[in-house]
């Protein structure tokens, strides 16, 4: 489903381009879960952004469901993010002016795949039924991240990309949120690629890749 080959990325530096990714190869099948770990600056988030079509690589290829992501223009990548990929951010990135119910349904509606029953069920499974008419500023961090997960899964993406999904939460809340996310992802049959610093989180994923200085270490 996901096939990444020799992926390279540079950032401009004072003394010339600084390599962030130096030839990454990875693949992921439907329903698989993969943790990307590594120190700060190892290139984890950059890799996630490239796979999600949020950024351009400087070399290599990314194939997602047979589509060459690197060959897509802005509109093509936008369509990919709407329909195929769902991204869960560390900072939640909810729409502050929409209430919980509308935030959860938001991406599904963008993708033209809104299913009211599924959205309601998701909200209930995420423990948000009593908060549907609240706005993000009225929620705790854990609740906001559950809304973000709901928003992503409501669109039934083929691939879920999660960037430090519990990084902003305390350990107990993080563990609960992670458990929920894994269960729901498994039920939807989506593949999951998670960037994390946490060994405990990584241990709960099917596979684990460690990045060091822009390369896969093991």
């Amino acid at each position: 489903m996901l096939d990444v080959r020799d992926l390279r990325k540079f950032y401009p530096g004072e003394a010339g381009p600084v390599p962030v990714l130096r030839g990454i190869d990875l693949s992921l099948g439907p329903g698989e879960t993969l943790a990307l770990t590594g120190e700060s600056g190892s290139g984890k988030s950059t890799l996630l952004h490239l796979i999600g079509g949020l950024d351009h690589p400087d070399g290599g290829s990314i194939e997602l469901d047979g589509i060459d992501v690197t060959a897509l223009d802005d509109a093509g990548r936008a369509a990919l993010r709407r329909r195929t990929v769902g991204v869960i951010f560390q900072q939640f990135n909810l729409i502050p002016s929409l209430d919980v119910a509308r935030n959860i349904a938001f991406q599904a509606k963008l993708a033209g795949q809104h299913d009211a029953d599924w959205t309601t069920e998701l909200a209930a499974r995420l423990g948000l039924s009593d908060h549907l008419h609240k706005y993000p500023e009225q929620l705790s961090g854990g609740q906001q991240q559950r809304v973000a997960i709901g928003r992503t899964l409501a669109a039934r993406p083929r691939l879920v990309l999660a960037d430090e999904p519990t990084g902003n939460l305390d350990e107990e809340t993080g563990a609960a949120v992670l458990g929920l996310m894994l269960r729901l992802v498994e039920e939807t049959g989506a593949a999951l690629l998670t960037v994390t610093h946490s060994d405990r989180l990584a241990a709960r994923m099917g596979r684990r890749l460690h990045l060091r200085h822009g390369r896969i270490a093991r």
Partner: peptide
Amino acid sequence: TLRALGVSRN
């Protein structure tokens, strides 16, 4: 967020 969720710039 809109851009990240798939709304193109145009």
